[in-house]
């Protein structure tokens, strides 16, 4: 099994796995900086227009946001179990939890879709006819659409990557010891971590 997982130029699977983990973390660091750029825009605009940001944050749907946070955290839990099951050579558990991860990811996107529909219906798309008059509110929603949109793209990529893991492990083309499972898990968790930061920024402001 491990012979099939081992690739050039590594001589040992443990070294290959270290390299995959390290490479993935370097990529995730660039992802963190990418999202931090957007969070910085949020912070700077909020600093300049605090009233508009609170008035706008009040208009996001806190229930969609909270349920989606729970869905995504649960998907990370499933992914963590899947990765550990892969390490422990528990094939059926690993595949079942990868499938649960994909299902929860799709559930997140579906809920987000309903939320977007409601947002558009309530004229929360910046531009002519925008619902909130307070200066700065449109800035908040510009940031909201870009951040949640880019996050949804990341999640879609994650769903495709985990879907690929399911197909290849089920067909036994990918051994459970492959570092690809761990690397994909790291990516999935990071997309979750980014949502964890977006949740209070976009949904919890202006509620009290």
């Amino acid at each position: 099994m491990s012979a099939a997982a081992l690739r050039e130029p590594w001589t040992r699977l443990s070294r290959q796995r270290e390299a995959a983990t390290f490479g993935m973390w370097v990529f995730l660091t660039s992802e963190l900086l990418f999202f931090s750029g957007m969070i910085l825009i949020y912070a700077a605009c909020r600093y300049l227009q605090p009233a508009g940001f609170l008035a706008a944050a009040r208009e996001t749907n806190v229930w969609f946001g909270t349920i989606n946070t729970m869905v995504l955290l649960t998907s990370s839990f499933a992914m963590a179990v899947a990765a550990q099951a892969g390490d422990a050579k528990l094939r059926r558990l690993a595949i079942a939890c990868l499938a649960a991860t994909v299902a929860l990811g799709l559930a997140f996107l579906t809920i987000k879709g309903f939320e977007y529909r409601e947002d558009i219906h309530e004229h929360l798309l910046p531009g002519a006819g925008f619902a909130i008059a307070t200066p700065g509110a449109q800035l908040f929603f510009s940031v909201y659409w870009v951040m949640t949109g880019v996050h949804a793209i990341h999640l879609s990529i994650g769903i495709a990557l985990v879907g690929r893991l399911i197909l290849e492990t089920a067909r036994r083309e990918l051994p459970l010891s492959s570092p690809e499972i761990q690397a994909t898990a790291l990516y999935w968790h990071l997309v979750d971590v980014i949502w964890i930061i977006l949740y209070p920024l976009l949904y919890l402001g202006g509620r009290s």
Binding site: A80, V193, Y199
Partner: peptide, 15 residues
Amino acid sequence: IAAAKAVLIGVIFME
């Protein structure tokens, strides 16, 4: 609280 959640995921789930 968001940071606490992120640390939990980073330290335990991301190993």
